[in-house]
């Protein structure tokens, strides 16, 4: 593994996670630099989602060390909440709050957690909705939007907290094909703005053109990682080669 430097915003060393007897993460070590876009892929059940969920403590790791922006994740709830303020997350199933309007979804955390005024939070929310291309939907409820629009609201909601890192857990897997592009476009924009991003995804077009690094997970470990060009054209591991040939056909 690469030596950690000051430039690393996420440092994971030998992370282990068990579900009961099942060993889901088997010693994952990975550093992520500021502004780096990392795409994680691999077969289902390989632990890729579990790994990014340990970074904001939606899953607890039982061995090893995770340091996010200089704060180590421990059982201390204050540390966890401090890290969660800096780490935004986008889920496969959007997880928008159905009883709140789009505007309320986005302003909720800034007003309650960051203690912004309502006016400030709403200005920020409108700006973000413009950025993801749906400012006219602010007053609607999530149930009235298409899947692609919902996922863009979810991205805006995460960005409203002005995070330093964004985690994407299969953000396009629940979308109809014609909506995948609108979400990927927003993510590409975000990557170009210099956001640090960890993306679990099988969108290989996105990985090829946007990612700085590809990481292949299998059976709870990192099998191989490298620049997209190298992984696609010349993977060194047989398992990577086989998996890529299956999803790229």
């Amino acid at each position: 593994m690469a030596e950690s430097s000051n430039d690393d915003i996420i440092i994971a060393r030998d992370v282990h996670k068990w579900y009961g007897q099942f060993h889901a993460l088997r010693g994952v070590s990975m550093n992520v630099r500021r502004g780096e876009v990392v795409v994680i892929f691999g077969p289902s059940g390989s632990g890729k989602s579990t790994f990014i969920r340990t970074i904001n403590r939606l899953e607890e790791h039982q061995r090893g060390q995770i340091i996010v922006d200089g704060i180590e994740l421990t059982n201390d709830i204050r540390n966890i909440e401090a890290i969660r303020m800096e780490v935004g997350m986008v889920f496969q199933s959007f997880n928008l709050f159905p009883h709140l309007t789009v505007m309320q979804n986005i302003t909720l955390a800034p007003t309650w957690v960051r203690k912004w005024s309502r006016a400030q939070a709403e200005d920020k929310a409108l700006e973000l909705l413009k950025r993801v291309g749906i400012p006219e939907q602010a007053k609607k409820f999530p149930g009235q939007l298409s899947g692609g629009q919902q996922q863009r609201v979810a991205i805006a909601r995460a960005l409203a907290m002005q995070p330093k890192i964004m985690l994407f857990d299969e953000p396009t897997s629940a979308l109809d094909p014609e909506m995948i592009k609108e979400v990927l476009d927003v993510m590409t924009d975000l990557a170009e703005s210099g956001m640090t991003m960890l993306v679990v995804s099988h969108e290989m077009g996105f990985a090829r053109s946007v990612a700085h690094r590809l990481v292949f997970f299998d059976a709870g470990t990192i099998v191989e990682q490298g620049a997209p060009k190298q992984i696609f054209s010349n993977p060194s591991e047989e398992r990577t080669k086989k998996f890529l040939s299956q999803i790229l056909q």
Partner: peptide, 22 residues
């Protein structure tokens, strides 16, 4: 759904706010 609490916690809301608001 569990995702509701997860989304709220991921935004930095504490347990009580998650319960009361979400």
């Amino acid at each position: 759904p569990r995702g509701q609490a997860e989304a709220a916690r991921a935004l930095g809301l504490n347990g009580i706010l998650t319960l009361l608001l979400i």
